[in-house]
Write a protein that binds this DNA or RNA. Sequence first.
DNA 1: ACCACAACCTGGCCGC
DNA 2: TGCGGCCAGGTTGTGG
Length: 291
Amino acid sequence: MPELPEVETIRSDLQREVVGSTITAVKLYWERVVAFPSAEDFVRGLTGRRIEDIGRRGKYLLFRLDSHDVLIAHLRMTGQLIHRRASDEMENQVRAVLELDDGSQLRFADMRKFGRLWLVPSELMVVGKLGPEPLAEEFTFEVFRERLRRRKGAIKPVLLDQSVIAGIGNIYADEALFAARIHPQTRVGDLTELQLQNLYQAVRAVLASGVENRGTTVDRYRDGLGRRGGFQEKLQVFRRAGQACPVCQGRIQRIVVGGRGTFICPSCQRLAVSSQKDEFDDPDPTQPWYH
DNA sequence: ACCACAACCTGGCCGC
DNA sequence: TGCGGCCAGGTTGTGG
């Protein structure tokens, strides 16, 4: 599941690999990979164009071209963008290939066919509704608090809402909430000032570490050269149900929040209940009176 | 504005 | 070994 750190890793790999190259041909093996414009116009608009720069907004990759059009890619769940020599063995489930003037290829592979490509005159057509970049300097605590303020409901679905903050997906949402010791079902309005500060720091730290470690390969994610990431070694809770919490040794649980699989340590991440239900229902296994 | 749910897809897993 | 059924999760769209 490519989220901000995975997409950023691919961006920096491809920046080094393909910026300055010219697209000599475009092959589509599954036309519906092109979300906009038509497959024909997409191929026509890319052929002969030089790649000037590669940017990123949230989970979107932005290839800026000398025509001032922007090629945009979203990998959704299983997409891969890999730079190879034309003579290298082809990946499975390749949906599109850009041939470059140095004899290399940029290959878009995607098992589940959810990923999409766009070719647009303005990137705002695709990424205009995204919230701020969480690792940008301008993303201060005040911005974070203000963005959350008008939202209601459980915190985890809010973190996953790309119009609130761009780039967080299921992996980093669970890791950030664990790092901040916040239960994913906590209502946004119930978060204390201290919890908001902890969550702000946790979101930034977890995403930055994800980038530092070149992303998380728990499934099909590969970087721009086809290599695995490293952050899966650092995961504290994600996909670790039944294993020991690294902090308290309690058992990590899988629950469902907002319809998504969610991993928590139930003793580190308590759901603050408004006094009606008492704490005796939910003994803390780390405390001596348990047993 | 919020929530729930379906749709898009296919490989992997489970139970029988 | 084989088959049906379910699950995974980013995003969009529908409907309450």
